[in-house]
Design a protein around this nucleic acid. Structure first.
Length: 468
RNA sequence: GGCGGGUUGGCGGAGAGGUUACGCAGCGGAUUGCAAAUCCGUGAAGACCGGUUCGAUUCCGGUACCCGCCUCCA
């Protein structure tokens, strides 16, 4: 069996991955807050951990991996959207408006992430379905002396957990010295964070031992991972920006609530995303969603390829140039395995080995280039090539419509005839005219002794072919 | 201010203490009505300064620059 090695943020080292139970490998990844479309940065961890999910399924068997990714549907931004709609005159209740907004956003998320070729996780719990579990965990923390109630809030007592800061390499004292902590009079210590907060009538709330209120952000992941994966599980993933404070707080909560267990064994964090060398932000005008790209005609598979062409622990720069290169490569690869069935085929072992070394997707893509060369020349190993690409979620059946030939038989025939005539008359004017028209419509024109081949490119516009 | 990460050839981007990464672009050639595509071949790197070593781009230290987090933005 292949040994998977993973860089563990907790130990800052690459380690052999040894699951607690090979019969059920368990992974939890922090999912989206469902208040709006997923932007390009949101897609990166989805594709990264989907690739890990696929690798784990390959190594341990598809039925022996449990992948949980949550939906955060309790959030002030969701509330704000709902309140805005209500203020605009919508007669429905706030709860109904919130439900509508989160349902709508989850639908978008699924559609967009499906387009990136990501498998649905085994379970996708919503925070609102686990409020009871959060309340019990908070009660346990209070009973254990790790949390306290004050002014309608319940706060986690950071000083009660000696390893607080270990994941992100910070000490409580250093952070306080940094002085960027929220000042709240009811906190025992400035670093203490909210487990539960009161809701007034204009906000969604649940009854609790501390009155009507709603959970703080961090407790949901602790409660849901415990309910669905247990007190100890294998991998916890998310973006690097979540390392502090979110994951640090999760560890504190979970380890104090279940001191006998180890919580997550391996922590993985993907680096952030940039666009054309700059941080993606609305103020710079380079902010866009996955849906924006899909609507512009960039295939989801191309977006996925670009994500995977940079190692997950390095900042990734999205550029139009990369998308162009990715498209060309995928077209070439898809042409090679157009009619190949990879079902049951053994994926190329070098690609798998490279990928198993801390999810080296960029290295795996390079290895695929080498395998392609070999298969191209020898004609053998197509299924193995495709199966290896499939572990990266590339060249999946059903995702290649964008690369499939469009019926251009008519223009092909006409151009062939024109060329036939021109070859004898030596007057190529008509041929060249038609060729430029085709090129302008986004069609790639290939002419050789073997004949004429027309291939639609990314910007192919069938409308422009009318009249040809 | 505190913590963490990065700096590889024209561009993108990996691995490895010593032997070609790879892709794109470029250049030369085959092919071509022209071009595209394809194929063959080919040049090009390791921010800076020290240290360890027979030998470092790869390990260690320092400098410069860049980036992220510390503000419920993945």
């Amino acid at each position: 069996m292949v040994t998977i090695r993973l860089h563990n943020s907790k130990t800052r080292r690459k380690e052999d991955f040894v699951p607690l139970n090979p019969g059920n490998v368990r992974m939890y990844v922090c999912g989206p807050t469902v208040y709006d479309r997923a932007h390009l940065g949101n897609g990166r961890p989805v594709v990264v951990f989907d690739t890990l999910f696929r690798l784990l399924r390959h190594v341990y068997g598809p039925d022996h991996v449990t992948y949980v990714r949550n939906f955060t549907d309790v959030d002030d931004k969701i509330n704000a959207t709902a309140q805005a709609r209500k203020a605009a005159g919508d007669p429905r209740s706030l709860e109904a408006l919130i439900r509508e907004r989160t349902e709508e956003t989850i639908g978008w998320y699924h559609a967009d992430m499906d387009a990136l070729g990501a498998l649905r996780p085994t379970q996708e719990p919503r925070a609102t379905e686990f409020i009871g579990a959060m309340i019990s965990m908070i009660e346990g923390l209070i009973a254990g002396g790790h949390a306290y109630e004050k002014a309608g809030h319940v706060l986690f007592r950071v000083r009660s957990y000696k390893d607080y800061g270990a994941l992100s390499g910070r000490s409580v004292d250093d952070m306080i010295a940094g002085a960027r902590v929220e000042v709240a009079p009811f906190k025992e210590d400035p670093m203490d964070f909210v487990l539960w907060k009161p809701s007034d009538a204009d906000l969604p709330g649940w009854e609790s031992p501390w009155g009507r209120g709603r959970p703080g952000w961090h407790i949901e992941c602790s409660a849901m991972s415990y309910e669905l994966l247990g007190a100890s599980f294998d991998i916890h993933g998310g973006g690097l920006d979540l390392q502090f404070p979110h994951h640090e707080n999760e560890i504190a909560q979970s380890c104090c609530a279940h001191p006998e267990a180890g919580f997550a064994q391996v922590w993985m964090h993907n680096e952030m995303l940039q666009v054309e060398g700059k941080k993606m932000s609305k103020s710079l005008g380079n902010f866009f969603t996955v849906r924006d790209l899909l609507d512009q005609g960039v295939p989801g598979e191309v977006i996925r390829f670009v994500y995977l062409s940079t190692h997950y622990r390095k900042p990734m720069d999205w550029t139009a140039e990369k998308a162009k290169e990715a498209e060309a490569t995928l077209r070439k690869w898809r042409a090679l395995v157009a009619d190949v069935d990879a079902e049951g085929a053994e994926p190329d072992h070098i690609v798998v080995a490279v990928l198993s070394d801390d999810l080296n997707t960029a290295g795996a893509i390079s290895a695929l280039h080498a395998v392609y060369q070999h298969v191209e020349h020898s004609g053998v190993g197509k299924a193995s090539f495709k199966a290896a690409a499939n572990i990266l979620g590339l060249l999946q059946d059903g995702m290649g419509a964008w690369a499939e030939p469009v019926d251009l038989a008519g223009p092909t025939m006409r151009l062939s005839e024109l060329r036939e005539v021109a070859m004898s008359t030596k007057d190529f004017a008509a041929v060249d005219a038609m060729k430029s028209a085709l090129t302008a419509a986004g069609v790639e024109v290939r002419m050789s002794k073997a004949g004429v081949v027309l291939l639609p490119g990314l910007g192919f516009d069938p409308e422009k072919l009318r009249g040809l």
